[in-house]
Design a protein around this nucleic acid. Sequence first.
DNA 1: CATGAATGAGCGTTCATTCAT
DNA 2: CATGAATGAACGCTCATTCAT
Lengths: 203, 203, 203, 203
Amino acid sequence: MTYADFMNAPKRRDRAATRSALLDAARRRFAEHGYDGTGVREIAADAGVDATLIFRYFGSKRHLFDEAANGEVPEGLGAPGAGPAELADALVREVVLGDAPAGGGEHPLLLMLRSAGRPEVRARLHEEVCDRYLADMADRFAGEDAALRAELVGALLLGMGVMRDVVGSPVLPGADPDRVRALVAAMVAALEAGGRPADPTGP
Amino acid sequence: MTYADFMNAPKRRDRAATRSALLDAARRRFAEHGYDGTGVREIAADAGVDATLIFRYFGSKRHLFDEAANGEVPEGLGAPGAGPAELADALVREVVLGDAPAGGGEHPLLLMLRSAGRPEVRARLHEEVCDRYLADMADRFAGEDAALRAELVGALLLGMGVMRDVVGSPVLPGADPDRVRALVAAMVAALEAGGRPADPTGP
Amino acid sequence: MTYADFMNAPKRRDRAATRSALLDAARRRFAEHGYDGTGVREIAADAGVDATLIFRYFGSKRHLFDEAANGEVPEGLGAPGAGPAELADALVREVVLGDAPAGGGEHPLLLMLRSAGRPEVRARLHEEVCDRYLADMADRFAGEDAALRAELVGALLLGMGVMRDVVGSPVLPGADPDRVRALVAAMVAALEAGGRPADPTGP
Amino acid sequence: MTYADFMNAPKRRDRAATRSALLDAARRRFAEHGYDGTGVREIAADAGVDATLIFRYFGSKRHLFDEAANGEVPEGLGAPGAGPAELADALVREVVLGDAPAGGGEHPLLLMLRSAGRPEVRARLHEEVCDRYLADMADRFAGEDAALRAELVGALLLGMGVMRDVVGSPVLPGADPDRVRALVAAMVAALEAGGRPADPTGP
DNA sequence: CATGAATGAGCGTTCATTCAT
DNA sequence: CATGAATGAACGCTCATTCAT
């Protein structure tokens, strides 16, 4: 057992540890108060280090935010050949029910949503959601208005995240996860069925 | 022409007009750039008055924001006795498709969402969504987990608004409104049907 | 006698007075400690006002410096048709002997010299000295190497200013002004005479 | 190969070499950008060592500057018994025409001038110029106002250095050195002759 | 009552410097 | 002894807000 092992409780002078402590604190603060509502001194205080280390390690508050919102966007979202129902179910589990692969806190998309006042954040949000999630989802829908139906699935999932994390509704966290998944599956199934044949012409 | 006429003509900007000009400008700015991204000078400049009048009339930027987010939450959301489908349809038209009763800009809920970094804003958002919309919606669902199903409808609608106004997805604004309403109706119907009997157990 | 007249000792809320108080303080500080050695808070404290007024009135510290170094560069430097001796004499009186037209403090060129670490300041200095003073002086010299002789006159005058204001030598301020002018005149005369004929070959 | 050989070979950068590498880099940086415009990290990077060594070897940035401006002030300025003309000529060659004894870069006086914002630097400048150069020069002048005439010679030389190195005028570097020396000699001669008799009363 | 000059707290960021390893 | 992580004071600047006129 080395000296460092023995003293690892205060764990000072550890580059990697400090960096990730700052990232953790940043994710929490940014998620809670948004980009503008969070000061670098607060992040540093949460991490228990001096504020200037943010600039040493990340260059600027902006870069810290970007990295905080980046790292953990999961790559594989579902089986490549699966249908929309399977993908939606995977997303429900990941985004809403909190089986987050990174374990840490919130989904990066919701972290960004809290700072959506900033144009640059909105730009990244747009790109991430439209070019990544919705495009993937639309590929799995057949029929002419696949994009619209994918958008509605995306809206449902995003809305669930907003309900839980921004609005703070207690319903989703308290509900039976299997029941939630079942209801979402029913909605997605309705979308899949609700293509052209059953001519649902409006008023 | 009397002396009073002479004195009144140039300064006809009375309290009420200035106040509502400030409120309008504030709504636009807050909706576009969020609370933190909006300065009192910008609002005042948009309204064509001096910035200090904001403090004279509203006390603080905070109070101006509160009032801007307040005024126009529509009261009657649908026929009192109607089912969830009718209510959802009314909300789709109002929130998403832009038949806004206030005519001006965005739905107040989305205005608040853009400023959800502020805890007080989130508190109001919570109250408004949970106590008003979701409670009303849950009342129209039968069955044991009415709250959960109401939450999912709310999430869908909220998510659609976020998609359009925050993420900036071009799909919803470009879609055929009747088609959108039909698809949403199908999803809500699936929710109504998806009660206990048809045991939709997930994987 | 108005109320303002009566209270003019503290002279508060007076735009023009505050602006020029800031300019005066800035000139003093910049001259004494250079650009980098001077903080906006110090300038403001000297002027007896809040530091943010610097930004209100000048936009930035940089602009304040520029204006402090600008305003009082005298335009007409001497009779247009006069020879180098007359121009040099006028400059001696103005730059060195302190018959400054602005009366305030130092000559702007010396103010800039104190901040010559900054590249932008050096650029202005170069431009001011070469394009303005030296070009004017060279025009008044006849002969082939007018530029070099003008440069030497300029160097002498600049050096006198540096001696007095930067080095802080007590000789010039304590000397008889007429004697100084006479000696400088003799040096310039030697320069005028020292053309080609009297072949003053070096060792 | 012994163990000592093995350990010594890679770290042959001993104290003296590192120290003088830092001093050289400091001289270059300070001369180019002034005291305030130069950071310790830049100096250390130029010298290829860690920035903290500056503090180990010199104690502070201030002390490093002092030592950088000290070391190379040349001692013997001219033949002890020679007149002002000879001394001036020696100084012209040394200060202005670049036959610098240290070979490296600029004359220390000009290095200090670039940092003349700092009071301590100005103090050293004053001491160096007045107590050393001017006193020496004044000793070689006869007549009542020897100090004043020495001051004018010093001003001319200093001004030439400023013209070349601070103002950046291209005239002096491009001129024929012998011609420069001849003109300066003529000016100094005028100063020697311009004693009392030739009553040079000003306007 | 309206104007705009004045304010002070706070922002992100940089810097010379110290201290643990 | 050397390395680089950590520090704290200061920087220029913006902001909502107050107060005198």
